[in-house]
């Protein structure tokens, strides 16, 4: 396998720590940048993300133009806290309310396209315990400093919180290594160079996001990579080492459900590409077992993975963004299809 992409398009966050230069490039290219934080019951971490991003990338250095929280219907104080610290807060169900309502991270990201105004959109998970502004500026950096890169994705060490107040140095990334990497190796060896394809932190130009479909749940990261790769090729993608990201550890059963959805998304994508042919439709139920009173009881979850179409096809979106120029003089429009 040729790994020239890995060498050429892999960066370290410190490559972009000159924030002045990033702001200069942003202004030169006449761009606006939105940060979107999708949330569901993130009252413990949301304030810290907003405070640090606002302080470092809005007040001290005007790299971000807005911080938007799109919430799936938290039952804790997430929305109140986020509003208190100055983010624009929306309930996902209140955005484009005439459409059928779904619940999931991908749904929030898709709807964020409608309510944000940035030419570049940065998506960060809202559960990052060690949040630092590098999580945003390092993803924006390649987009501003390169004319070719249109989508950037994070990778990192993943220490996990193992018990109250204690950390384990390595771990996490199990779904990546057990599910996605084998699948990429089987069908798209080139994509194995993306070290953490499931990382929840990425940024890209609006023109990219508005023209690809968004699965509403766990499949969003997988489908996004496959769609961008298929449409524009690997060279528009960059990956950035953000070093350490501390997150909540998920139990194996939860990871199993995540793997279920990702597998389904992947298989549907490769069928669409003509790489496989399914003889029958796949089921929508993930079946796990739990021990209750010395009996194994099935624990069945419906995991239907709905998918939002490219938002560019939604009339309300077109109406809202119709007055906006589709391209900017300083950055290349995406008219070319994949050339590899």
């Amino acid at each position: 396998m040729n790994n020239t992409w890995l060498e050429k398009n892999t960066f370290h966050y410190s490559d972009f720590s000159d924030l002045k230069l990033l702001v200069e490039q942003k202004e030169k290219k006449n761009l606006t940048i939105s940060l979107c934080l999708p949330t569901l019951n993130e009252e413990k971490t949301i304030a810290k993300e907003i405070i640090i991003m606002k302080s470092e990338l809005m007040t001290r250095c005007p790299l971000l133009d807005e911080i938007v929280v799109v919430d799936s219907g938290s039952t804790d104080q997430t929305r109140e806290i986020a509003g208190e610290y100055g983010a624009d807060v929306y309930k996902a169900s209140d955005i484009l309310p005439d459409l059928e309502n779904f619940r999931g991270k991908g749904e929030n990201l898709w709807k964020a396209l409608y309510i944000t105004k940035g030419d570049i959109i940065v998506y960060l998970d809202a559960d990052i315990k060690n949040i630092h502004h590098r999580f945003a500026y390092a993803l924006i950096g390649p987009l501003l400093l390169s004319d070719d890169i249109k989508y950037s994705k994070a990778f990192y060490d993943r220490p996990i919180a193992i018990e109250k107040n204690k950390m384990r140095a390595t771990g996490g990334g199990r779904v990546t290594e057990l599910v996605i990497r084998p699948l990429f190796s089987l069908y798209f060896p080139e994509l194995t160079q993306i070290l953490q394809p499931l990382s929840g932190e990425y940024a890209g130009y609006r023109e990219i996001f508005e023209t690809i479909p968004f699965p509403i749940g766990y499949g969003i990261e997988t489908s996004m990579i496959l769609d961008i790769y298929e449409k524009w090729g690997l060279d528009v993608i960059a990956q950035v080492d953000l070093e350490k990201r501390v997150h909540r550890n998920q139990d194996t059963k939860a990871l199993g459900r995540m793997a279920f959805v990702i597998l389904k998304t992947f298989l549907n994508r490769i069928e669409k590409l003509g790489l496989i042919q399914k003889k029958k439709e796949m089921f929508n139920e993930m079946i796990q077992f739990k021990l209750e009173k010395n009996r194994y009881m099935p624990d069945i979850r419906q995991l239907e993975e709905h998918e939002r179409p490219p938002i560019i096809g939604v009339p309300e979106y077109c109406k809202k963004f119709s007055s906006k120029p589709q391209t900017h003089p300083e950055h290349t429009p995406f008219t070319s299809e994949k050339t590899e």
Partner: peptide
């Protein structure tokens, strides 16, 4: 140094070792 030093913040309080 091995304690979890990540702070949490809510509306009224900032918490951390």
């Amino acid at each position: 140094k091995d304690s979890d030093h990540n702070f949490t913040i809510k509306t009224d309080y900032l918490t951390g070792p």
